[in-house]
Design a protein around this nucleic acid. Structure first.
Length: 153
DNA sequence: GCCAACGTTGGC
DNA sequence: GCCAACGTTGGC
């Protein structure tokens, strides 16, 4: 099983939105970055991911989700009315994909980015999210990083 | 294939 | 709101 980190802006769709969603599940649509897409296509049923809040008061990890459906075409790319429309993607030749994720755990508190930087100098020194200028919305997380971060709770 | 221009991300 | 960092685009 692999581990991941998935970013979202809580003003748009945060962990409380996921908690309210039908079956605590949502389609992770709107990814329009090739590297992030490629990571999504590597995701397998049962993989776990940190649910990360970005561009907000306290950026950080808000909980854990599991992958409940592997990559399938992101239909929002086909809809010219949709903000994520991409004319280069078509049902016959889809360019963008999404997975379904289900809420596993909402943490009692957000593990702030600042906290990860402070306590993870050693154990998290290679973590993608902590690297300067990182913008990838989906990144792999090593087992050691996963375990360490869970131990902060 | 290079690279300048542009748009976006995301922490602060 | 600022701006550094980054990805993508398109002219050449």
């Amino acid at each position: 099983m692999n581990h991941w980190l998935m970013k979202t802006e809580p003003a748009t769709f945060g962990i409380d939105d996921l908690a309210r969603a039908r079956n605590h599940t949502t389609a992770w649509d709107g990814v329009r970055n090739f590297q992030a897409r490629n990571y999504m296509r590597e995701m397998r049923l049962g993989d776990l991911a940190f649910f990360y809040h970005s561009s907000c008061d306290v950026p950080g990890i808000a909980g854990i989700v599991s992958i409940t459906r592997e990559a399938y075409p992101d239909h929002t790319a086909f809809d010219s009315e949709d903000p994520h429309f991409d004319e280069k993607s078509s049902p016959a030749n889809p360019r963008w994909f999404m997975v379904d994720v289900k809420l596993v755990t909402k943490f009692d508190r957000v593990i702030a980015l600042e906290e990860l930087r402070r306590y993870g100098q050693d154990k998290l020194k290679n973590m993608v999210i902590l690297k300067r200028g990182n913008r990838l919305s989906i990144t792999p997380v090593s087992r050691a990083e996963w375990n360490f971060i869970n131990s902060l709770l």
